[in-house]
Amino acid sequence: MGYDLSMRVWRGNEDGGALQDFTVSVEEGEVVLDALHRLQATQAGDLAIRWNCKAGKCGSCSAEINGRPRLMCMTRLSEYEPSETITVTPMRTFPIIKDLVTDVSYNYEKAKEIPAFAPTPPDPDGKHRMMQVDVERGQEFRKCIECFLCQDTCHVVRDHEDNKSAFAGPRFFLRYAELDMHPLDTHDRRQLAQAAAGLSMCNITKCCTEVCPEHIKITDNAIIPMKERVVDRKYDPLVWLGSKIFRRDQREEVES
C-alpha cells in the first residue's frame, strides 16, 4: 500500500549544499530511485541524478543511502520502516558536480593507465580455444558494472585525496587480476600492478567486497592472489630471471 515517505536529499554543488527535506508519496514495491524520480517530476525538476537501466545492470545510480554506498535502483523501500526517514547523499570520495551527481573522472583516468590486452595468436582455423573452468575466474571480475561503489568505500582514497594519484583502487585491481588470469593474455602485469597501481597501499580490509552489488569477491579472489604472486616472484630467482629475459612489458620499459 502507498504511503508518504520522508526523505532527506543532499542538494548543492561544488560551492556547497545541504540536506533538504521532502515528503513524497510512494507505492508498494518501489525502490529509492522511484521515489527520487517522483520528486523530480513533481517537486524538484532540476534534481540531478544519474540512472539508465533501473535494474542493477549499468552501474549509473550509485549514491549513499543512510550512509551506505548502494545502487538507488536496487534499494527497495520495503527495507525501511514506513515511518523511517531515508537520507540520500552523493558518493563521498568523488568531487560533487550537483546534488547526487559526482565527478567520477578519476576512474576513467585510471582505466587509461591499464595496458591493452595482448592475446596469443588464434589457432589455424581463426578461433581461440579456452576451457570454461579457465575463463570463469576472469568472468567473475568482468561482471563488474563500474558503479564505483568499491572505489567510494575504500578508505585509502575515501578521505585521502592525496592518495588518488598513486592508487588505482579495487575496481582496477580487478582489471589487473583479470588480465593476469586471462588464459590468452601474454603480458605479465604483476609488477606493474605493484608499482603503478598502488596495490601495496591496500591493507585488505575487504570493505570494497562488502559493498559490491555484483558480489564480486574483490579482496579474496583478485587482490590477495595478486599480492601473493607479486611477493612470490620477488623471492623466486628463476621467475625473476625469466621475467628479465622474456617479458614484453619490461622490454618496453627499458626502451622508453
Partner: peptide
C-alpha cells in the same frame, strides 16, 4: 571472434570454443 581478440570472455563449449 574479433571481440575475443580484444579480451572478451564468452562462455565455452566442451571443446573450448
Amino acid at each position: 571472434l574479433e571481440l575475443e581478440e580484444w579480451g572478451a570472455l564468452f562462455d565455452r563449449t566442451a571443446d573450448g570454443l
